[in-house]
Simulated assay, not measured.
Amino acid sequence: MRWAVMGAGAVGCYYGGMLAREGHEVVLIGRAAHVDAVRREGLRLQAQTFDERVPVGASTEAAAAAGADVVLCCVKSPDTEDAARALQPHLAPGALVLSLQNGVDNAERLRAVLAQEVLPAVVYVATEMAGPGHVRHHGRGELVIGPSARSAALADVFGAAGVPVQVSDNVAGALWAKLILNCAYNALSAIARQPYGPLVQGVGVAAVMRDVVDEGLAVARAEGVTLPGDMHEAVRGLAGTMPAQLSSTAQDLLRGKPTEIDHLNGLVVRRGEARGVATPVNRALWALVKLIEAGPVRA
């Protein structure tokens, strides 16, 4: 199979690298610094059990997705429509687009632009870009994808590449569960600039996370979404599986990049307003991250 990764950041490079390592033809579409490094030396995939240079294609142009059987869309949520418009002229009619993004509505937004089949996916992986062309994997890596005539084949291909995949009839619930996990961790990790392990030991942090989860659950119920499992237990357990992970929101702030906070805690706030559900803790975390994102006022 031929694969293209639109948005070759930490998530895209990890999954693209794992597929390329298994022998699939993969092209990473990303920023020039990363593309240049990958072209020179291959993608350095530093996982928990191996550290290898993986030969993989790389380009700064969406046109590189031409001929791909599957496109992994891994851009930040604010860039979803722009990425879809850039891909649109180049995708084969039968190409499948898999949204590996934070948030709950990216697949819908991609479908509004693209005629190709789009599947949502829930991503559970701890990764970071350690430098140009260098992705570091801290833990996990499984995917939950929506049902399709091609879902079983995708699961087999990913599984052979070392990526566990579950096909779920309740992918909306899985997306909301991931959203609530992100809401509990991302903003706090960004504000405190701490990875998950030390973060959860902070005074009062567990209570704040509990409030964030309760608000998210209330909004999800108002949206008619059924969430799998016990979200409070899932939030409590996440730090143990990813103790060294700095949230993607924290990584963005440290690099001076825009965050996805509008599509995380901000989305819970907006959906809560629309449904008449109060979300004061999510609102406070969203507002604080937006303040940090805007930067200090210059004299």
Rank of each mutant, 00 (worst) to 15 (best):
Ala222Arg: 12
Leu72Ala: 13
Leu91Pro: 07
His90Ser: 01
Gly295Val: 13
Val27Gln: 00
Gly146Ser: 11
Val104Asn: 02
Gln88Ile: 01
Gly272Tyr: 01
Arg271His: 05
Glu61Leu: 14
Gly139Gln: 10
Ile29Cys: 10
Glu41Cys: 11
Lys257Glu: 15
Val171Arg: 02
Ala278Trp: 01
Val5Ser: 03
Phe50Val: 09
Arg53Ile: 05
Leu91Phe: 08
Val171Asn: 01
Pro296Lys: 11
Arg150Gln: 13
Val277Ile: 11
His263Tyr: 15
Ser247Tyr: 12
Arg221Asp: 11
Val297Cys: 12
Glu52Ala: 14
Lys290Cys: 02
Gly133Arg: 07
Leu253Arg: 13
Ser189Asp: 01
Leu188Val: 04
Trp286Pro: 03
Val11Cys: 08
Pro195Ser: 03
Ser148Ile: 06
Ser168Ala: 06
Gly30Arg: 09
Gln48Leu: 15
Arg221Ser: 10
Ala64Tyr: 12
Asp169Thr: 11
Leu45Arg: 11
Val5Gln: 02
Val26Pro: 13
Ala8Ile: 05
Leu254Asp: 14
Glu81Phe: 06
Arg2Ile: 05
Gly276Asp: 00
Ser168Phe: 02
Gly30His: 09
Asp214Val: 10
Ile191Trp: 02
Ala130Gln: 06
Gly17Gln: 10
Ala278Val: 02
Asn265Leu: 04
Ala207Cys: 01
Glu108Tyr: 01
Gln46Glu: 15
Thr60Met: 12
Val277Asp: 00
Pro120His: 10
Leu175Ala: 04
Ile292Trp: 01
Gly30Phe: 09
Ala149Gly: 15
Val35Phe: 10
Ala86Pro: 05
Gly30Tyr: 09
Val125Gly: 02
Arg111Asn: 03
Thr259His: 12
Ala64Ile: 12
Ala86Tyr: 07
Ala218Glu: 11
Leu72Cys: 10
Gly146Asn: 06
Arg136Phe: 04
Val289Met: 06
Val118Leu: 08
Arg21Tyr: 09
Arg270Thr: 07
Ala20Phe: 09
Leu87Gly: 10
Thr249Glu: 07
Asp230Gln: 12
Gly94Glu: 13
Thr259Cys: 10
Met129Cys: 13
Leu254Glu: 15
Pro120Asn: 10
His134Val: 12
Ser189His: 00
Tyr185His: 05
Val5Phe: 03
Val38Ile: 15
Arg31Phe: 13
Ala8Leu: 05
Lys257Leu: 15
Gly17His: 09
Pro78Glu: 10
Val71Lys: 10
Val11Phe: 07
Arg271Ile: 02
Trp286Tyr: 15
His232Tyr: 08
Ala66Asn: 14
Arg140His: 08
Gly272Met: 03
Arg109Met: 02
Val171Thr: 07
Leu267Pro: 00
Arg40Glu: 15
Leu175Lys: 04
Glu273Trp: 00
Ala126Thr: 00
Gly94Pro: 01
Leu114Phe: 07
Val208Ile: 15
Pro55Asp: 15
Asn170Gln: 05
Val135Pro: 06
Val54Gln: 07
Ala192Asp: 01
Leu181Pro: 03
Asp252Asn: 11
Pro258Lys: 11
Arg53Thr: 12
Gly42Phe: 14
Glu41Asp: 15
Ala4Met: 06
Pro78Gln: 11
Lys257Pro: 04
Leu246Asp: 05
Glu128His: 14
Ala20Val: 09
Arg236Met: 10
Met18Val: 04
Val212Trp: 07
Gly94Ala: 07
Ala149Met: 03
Val289Leu: 07
